[in-house]
Simulated scan of single mutants.
Amino acid sequence: MLKHWTGRSRLLLTLLAVLLVASVGSAPLRTASTTVGTELTLTATQSTVGVALGGNAVVAVAVSGPGSLLGPVNLSVTGAPSASVVTILPNPVPAGLPAVISVLTSGSTPVGTHFLKITATNGASTTTVTVKLVVTLPTGFTMTLAPPLRTVVDGETTSFTLNINRGLLAGPIGLTLSGVPQYATATVSPSLSILGNTATITIRTATNVVPGTYLITVAGKSLLSSATASAYLVVLPQTYPNFPVSGDPDRELAPGAPEAAIDMEITNPFDAAMTVSNIGVTIEGTDTSSQPGGCAVDNFEILAYGGPATLVVPPNSTRTLSQLGVARADWPAIRMLNTSANQDMCKGVDVDLRLNAKGAGA
């Protein structure tokens, strides 16, 4: 054992991907109908959908299965009324994403109640869910939104095309939008009161929009009649490049001496506040551990971080644990064990540390 031992520590910068997801605004749609099969679960966001002749009915479905190895799932639909066109986007359905069932009606589609049987198949596993479709007569004009599904990543912009079948209507139609996520903005071009037959609905999402599935609905109203058109917007979480974490032990190490604590420094390079969790340190190795009789990593021990489970780093800023209010006693730390073996090989050794942290939207 050493009576007088001094050492220094070297740490490796740890970079972890960040998932920035934050908002307290309009919630994504919740499941309205669920069927659980032997190995698959099929859910629909609406148990009943309505559409006027010439309009387009849409319903979103999602498929999940046990574990995390669910592959693409094929969807099919039966029970749609005659003189209608069924579209499934996307099909097959990638794991973790929803699909939209679109039923475009025509003037010859039978009015009344129909039952859409949606079937999900993955190998030998099959399950179904039923959604009621109510077809009614139009009150004057009809509208559709195309495409029935748009998928964006937080911070991106997308658009839908509104098509109007005016019939005998010649006057202006006033438009209103609903279902747009909070922290997203929606605009209508040429305007919210149109005389033509088409308009563009543009939706710009922000990085703090809650990821999920949203039913975007455009309501049109003229002097004597009204109509609606809907489509789905799927918002995926934004992923960012790695963010830097750094720090140095605050004292030299010696066998049996007090631990060296690490006041970790976390940089948030993003434009929104970042919640940091899973803070920790691991030993990657020593610079002599490959030599015969070298200073192996089992001469050292890591003391876990003991502060708050989550910390918030302001946007475009760097904060240390101490600046975030974490006491030194709760910082992650490293100490050298006082073993019965000869530890002369540990004199002046570099210990490579890996600092860990996970970032998400505040």
Score class of each variant (00 low, 15 high):
Trp5Ile: 11
Arg8Gly: 15
Leu13Ala: 15
Val18Glu: 09
Leu19Met: 10
Leu20Arg: 07
Leu20Ile: 10
Val21Arg: 14
Val21Tyr: 04
Ala22Glu: 13
Ala27Phe: 02
Ala27Val: 07
Pro28Cys: 08
Thr31Asp: 14
Ser33Ala: 14
Thr35Tyr: 08
Thr38Trp: 11
Gly50Val: 08
Val51Tyr: 00
Ala57Trp: 01
Val59Cys: 07
Ser68Pro: 04
Leu70Lys: 03
Gly71Ala: 04
Val73Gln: 05
Pro81Trp: 00
Ser84Val: 07
Pro90Leu: 00
Pro92Thr: 03
Ala99Cys: 04
Val100Tyr: 03
Val103Phe: 06
Thr105Gln: 08
Ser106Thr: 15
Ser106Tyr: 09
Ser108Ile: 06
Thr109Asp: 04
His114Gly: 05
Phe115Ile: 10
Lys117Gln: 13
Lys132Cys: 13
Thr139Val: 11
Gly140Val: 11
Leu145Glu: 03
Thr151Tyr: 01
Asp154Gln: 15
Asp154Ala: 15
Gly155Asn: 00
Thr157Lys: 08
Thr158Gln: 03
Ser159Ile: 06
Ser159Trp: 03
Phe160Asp: 05
Asn163Leu: 14
Asn163Trp: 10
Ile164Trp: 02
Ile164Gln: 04
Asn165Cys: 12
Leu168Phe: 15
Gly171Asn: 15
Gly171Phe: 09
Leu177His: 06
Ser178Tyr: 10
Gly179His: 04
Gln182Thr: 15
Ala184Val: 07
Thr187Ser: 14
Leu195His: 13
Gly196Lys: 07
Thr198Tyr: 01
Thr200Arg: 07
Thr200Gly: 05
Thr200Ser: 12
Ile201Tyr: 06
Thr202Leu: 02
Arg204Thr: 11
Arg204Asp: 00
Thr205Ile: 01
Thr205Ala: 03
Asn208Phe: 02
Val209Arg: 06
Val210Thr: 15
Gly212Leu: 00
Ile216His: 00
Ile216Asp: 00
Ile216Ser: 02
Lys221Val: 11
Ser222Asp: 13
Leu224Glu: 14
Ser226Cys: 10
Tyr232Phe: 09
Pro237Gln: 02
Pro244Thr: 14
Pro249Val: 11
Pro255Leu: 03
Gly256Asp: 05
Thr267Ala: 12
Met274Ile: 08
Asn278Thr: 10
Asn278Met: 09
Gly280Gln: 06
Val281Trp: 01
Thr282Met: 05
Glu284Leu: 13
Thr286Asn: 09
Asp287Leu: 06
Ser289Ala: 13
Gly293His: 01
Gly294Glu: 12
Asn299Ala: 08
Ile302Pro: 03
Leu303Asp: 14
Leu303Pro: 07
Ala304Ser: 14
Ala304Asp: 13
Gly306His: 08
Gly306Glu: 08
Gly307Pro: 02
Pro308Asp: 09
Thr310Tyr: 09
Val313Gly: 06
Pro314His: 11
Pro315Leu: 05
Asn316Glu: 08
Thr318Arg: 01
Arg319His: 08
Thr320Tyr: 04
Thr320Trp: 03
Gln323Val: 05
Arg328Leu: 01
Ala329Lys: 09
Trp331Gln: 09
Ala341Tyr: 02
Ala341Val: 08
Asp344Tyr: 10
Met345Asp: 10
Met345Asn: 12
Cys346Asn: 03
Val349Ser: 01
Leu355Ser: 09
Ala357Glu: 01
Gly361Asn: 04
Gly361Val: 04
